Amino acid sequence: MLLGLALAPPLVQAWSLNIAAASRRVFLHVGNGTRDATNTTINRVEVTVPGAALASGAAQAMTTNSTQSTTLYGDGYTTCPTPASQILVGAAYRRSNGGDGPASATLTVTSPASLTNAAGDTLPFSQISWTVSAPGSSVPNVIAAGTFNGGTLTLATVPANTYIENCHTFSYANSVLPAAGTYNGRVTYTLSSP
């Protein structure tokens, strides 16, 4: 996902589905995607801060270019009803009943220390955070909300033969005064099971 330069009230809900045991496999979905094919789409999350609001400390809601509103696993339920302001994140870990791998997989997100503009100016990635939700779900949150830290954050542990997902809504803290420009940076979501 590419972030450019959230504050919705956090709803701590997610979807968690049991999936059939089978040969070992991980499945990760962030933003637009397809269920059973490799997808190289990189969705953008961005905000334009009005001049009068710069460095005011008033958090700025971010928008996305995602169009993915429905789950890619299971029944096609609308998990993210407003994809223009949400990114759908889903992860599945499958293994055989004989236990052909670890009992769980780990979902992480990694960010650089800073976003940069064309002039080389920087803006701390820690200015960007996210809340999580899955409207209508009664399942407790299984993918964490947080703030990028210029390193790797663990978002969830995915038990064997389970699929989890929720929506991430991003915001820019707007508590620093950056040099003028468009700042870019890329975060990487990873699902791994050694």
Rank of each mutant, 00 (worst) to 15 (best):
F27N: 01
L107A: 03
P10L: 04
S192Q: 13
P159Y: 06
A58L: 15
T157I: 04
V49H: 06
S114K: 13
T154L: 08
D75M: 08
Y189P: 10
G76T: 11
L153R: 10
G150N: 06
R35L: 10
T190A: 15
W130R: 04
G151I: 10
N117C: 07
P81A: 12
A22Y: 07
T162Q: 12
H168Y: 04
Q127H: 00
R25Y: 06
A55S: 13
A91C: 09
S16T: 15
N32S: 12
A173Y: 02
T41L: 04
V158G: 01
N184S: 15
V12T: 06
S16Q: 15
A160F: 04
T110H: 06
G98E: 00
P178A: 05
I164E: 14
T67V: 13
Y189G: 08
S193E: 14
I42Y: 08
T82Y: 08
A105L: 10
P102E: 14
N43H: 09
V89C: 09
E46N: 14
S111P: 03
P194Q: 10
L107D: 02
T48H: 03
A58V: 14
V176G: 02
L88A: 00
A119Q: 05
S85M: 09
Y183H: 05
V30G: 01
A14H: 11
F148K: 00
R95C: 04
V139I: 09
P124G: 08
L7G: 05
A55H: 14
V132H: 03
L191S: 03
F148N: 12
L7T: 04
R95T: 09
P178C: 06
Q60V: 07
G57W: 04
N117K: 07
T40Q: 11
A84K: 12
F27W: 11
R186M: 11
V142T: 14
T182K: 09
W130Q: 02
N166T: 07
N43P: 11
P194H: 01
L115P: 05
P102F: 11
N184K: 14
N161H: 08
R35I: 02
P81D: 09
T169M: 08
N141W: 00
L17G: 00
T106P: 05
A58E: 13
S137F: 13
E165A: 14
L153C: 03
